[in-house]
């Protein structure tokens, strides 16, 4: 459907790197999906439409779309020049990423509140806030309100750590 590209474009546009990676990623995902779908065992009892038919159709469709995206990328990509030239703020992304990773690692061992405060401070820092102490206090207040309010209303049991247990003992509330 995009075969006439060469005559269409007056100047041959350079392939867009970012878009090529995205297109390739979609294609790789489709191949992994197809390979995974092949490994689903099919019992002959369910011969009509087994558990693999729709997964394979999905993989095939995604593969086709991946190819179309790659073609589009090689013809210069689909993003506007403005969007292409905008470089993401790496420092901001790294701060948030650090917050997320620390949160996953710490939420089990030290509990929700402390992990949340660290996440809160890191994200706020990513958005340019330098007031670490203020952010930590607001984060702690927020996390505690969320822990006792949200969790008890919704009946969600968020793993409690040292901090929560101490406060629960202090105010005599059973968490969760």
């Amino acid at each position: 459907m995009t075969s006439g590209s060469q005559e269409d474009a007056p100047l041959r546009p350079r392939p867009a790197v970012g878009e090529t990676i995205i297109g390739a990623g979609v294609l790789v995902l489709a191949i992994v999906m197809f390979w995974q779908a092949m490994s689903i065992p099919v019992s002959p009892l369910y011969a009509k439409v087994g558990p693999t038919v729709v997964p394979m159709m999905t993989a095939a469709a995604l593969g086709m779309l991946g190819v179309l995206l790659l073609i589009d990328a090689w013809q210069g990509g689909w993003q506007t020049e403005e969007e292409k030239s905008a470089t993401p703020d790496r420092a901001a992304l790294l701060w948030i990423l650090a917050g997320l990773v620390l949160n996953v690692l710490l939420i089990g061992p030290v509990g929700f509140t402390i992990a949340s405060v660290i996440l809160f401070v890191c994200v706020a820092r990513g958005f340019g806030s330098k007031a670490i102490v203020r952010d930590a206090l607001i984060g702690a207040a927020f996390a505690l309100v969320a822990y006792f309010g949200f969790a008890t209303t919704l009946g969600i049991n968020i793993g409690s750590g040292l901090f929560e247990a101490t406060i629960e003992r202090l105010i005599g509330v059973e968490g969760g």
Binding site: I107, S116, L119, F127, G139, L154
Partner: peptide, 20 residues
């Protein structure tokens, strides 16, 4: 900074709370 930090903390509770 506070808005988005709050959003991510809430996102974490909402998700972690399902199965811990």
């Amino acid at each position: 900074p506070l808005l988005y930090a709050g959003i991510l903390v809430f996102a974490t509770i909402g998700t972690y709370g399902i199965t811990q």
